[in-house]
C-alpha cells in the first residue's frame, strides 16, 4: 500500500539495466543481421540455402529431438518409480536427479570426458574384464553428446511427469485390466493418456532448452555434431562474421520464441479444461 505512488522508481534500476544491456544489444543483433553487407534478407537466405548451414540446423533439431525422446523414455520409468517408492528412496532419487542440476555443465562435461574417452575409465574397465579388445569411441561423437545432454535435461522431464503421476488414481488401470484389457493395452489406452499433460510439458521444456545448447555438444561432440549455438560462437570468434552470426542468433531466437508461445497457448487451453 505505502509504495503505491512511488513504486515505479523501484523498477527503474532493473528496467534500465535490462533495457540498455540486454534489449538494446539484442535489437542491435537483429539490425546487423538485415543491414550487412547491404539491407535485405541475404543472410537469412544464405542460412536456409547453403548445405552446411542447413546441416547445422538439421543437427540442432535432430539432437534436440532425440534428446527429448530419450529423456521421455528414461524419465517416464524414473518418475513412475519416484512416485511409487518409499519416502526414503524417493528422497534419494530426487537428490540424484537434482544434484547434476546444481553442478556446472562444464564440470559435468569434463567428468564425462574422463569416463568416456579412449583411455578413460569405462574403456579401461571394459578392457580389464575382457569384454572389448579395442577401446570404443564413446565420446567426440553423437553418442557422447546425447549421453551428456540427457543427463543435464532429465530433471525438466522428470518433475512435470512426477507431479502428474502422483495424482493418477491407480484404480483406473485396475479397472481396465479387470474389464479384460491386457496390461500393455491398459497402459497405452488408459495410463499413458493420463500422463500426457506432464509428458507434453516436459518434452517441450527439454526440446526448447536443448535447441540453444552449446557447452555439452562443443565438448562431447565431434565435427559432425555442431549445433546452432556452437556455429554462432565460431562465426564470431574465428571469423568475426557478425552478419551471419546475428542472423543465426535471430533464427534461434524466433524458433525458441515461437515454441514458447505455443507451449503457453497449450497450457492455457488445458487450463480452461478442454
Amino acid at each position: 500500500m505505502f509504495l503505491k505512488n512511488r513504486n515505479i522508481w523501484l523498477l527503474a534500476p532493473a528496467v534500465l539495466l535490462i533495457g540498455i544491456c540486454f534489449l538494446f544489444p539484442v535489437s542491435w543483433l537483429l539490425q546487423r543481421s538485415v543491414s550487412e553487407p547491404v539491407w535485405g534478407l541475404q543472410n537469412y537466405i544464405t542460412i536456409f540455402s547453403k548445405t552446411i548451414y542447413l546441416g547445422v540446423l538439421w543437427n540442432t533439431v535432430a539432437i534436440a529431438g532425440v534428446t527429448t525422446l530419450l529423456c521421455a523414455l528414461i524419465g517416464f520409468p524414473v518418475a513412475y518409480s519416484m512416485a511409487h517408492s518409499s519416502p526414503w528412496i524417493r528422497k534419494v532419487l530426487i537428490f540424484s536427479v537434482l544434484i547434476p542440476f546444481w553442478t556446472s555443465i562444464l564440470v559435468r562435461s569434463f567428468a564425462w570426458l574422463v569416463i568416456l574417452q579412449r583411455g578413460g575409465i569405462l574403456n579401461d574397465f571394459l578392457a580389464g574384464i575382457g569384454l572389448i579388445a579395442e577401446p570404443l569411441d564413446l565420446v567426440y561423437n553423437r553418442f557422447g553428446v546425447l549421453l551428456g545432454m540427457v543427463q543435464v535435461l532429465l530433471p525438466f522431464m522428470v518433475f512435470p511427469l512426477f507431479s502428474v503421476i502422483t495424482r493418477i488414481d491407480g484404480s483406473y488401470f485396475s479397472a481396465a485390466t479387470n474389464l479384460g484389457a491386457t496390461p500393455i493395452r491398459a497402459f497405452f489406452r488408459v495410463y499413458l493418456p493420463l500422463c500426457l499433460p506432464g509428458l507434453a510439458t516436459g518434452a517441450m521444456l527439454v526440446f526448447i532448452i536443448s535447441l540453444g545448447y552449446f557447452i555439452t555438444p562443443a565438448l562431447l561432440g565431434g565435427r559432425g555434431d555442431i549445433m546452432i549455438a556452437q556455429l554462432i560462437f565460431e562465426r564470431i570468434d574465428e571469423f568475426g562474421d557478425w552478419p551471419l552470426a546475428s542472423a543465426l542468433a535471430i533464427v534461434l531466437l524466433v524458433g525458441t520464441g515461437l515454441l514458447f508461445v505455443l507451449v503457453n497457448a497449450l497450457i492455457k487451453i488445458r487450463g480452461r479444461g478442454i
Binding site: 544491456c21 544489444p25 539484442v26 552449446f214 554462432i232 560462437f233 520464441g257
Partner: peptide
C-alpha cells in the same frame, strides 16, 4: 532465451 544469443549481443555492443 538461449544464453548464446545474450552472449553474442552483449559482446557485440
Amino acid at each position: 532465451i538461449p544464453v548464446i544469443i545474450t552472449a553474442a549481443a552483449i559482446f557485440g555492443v
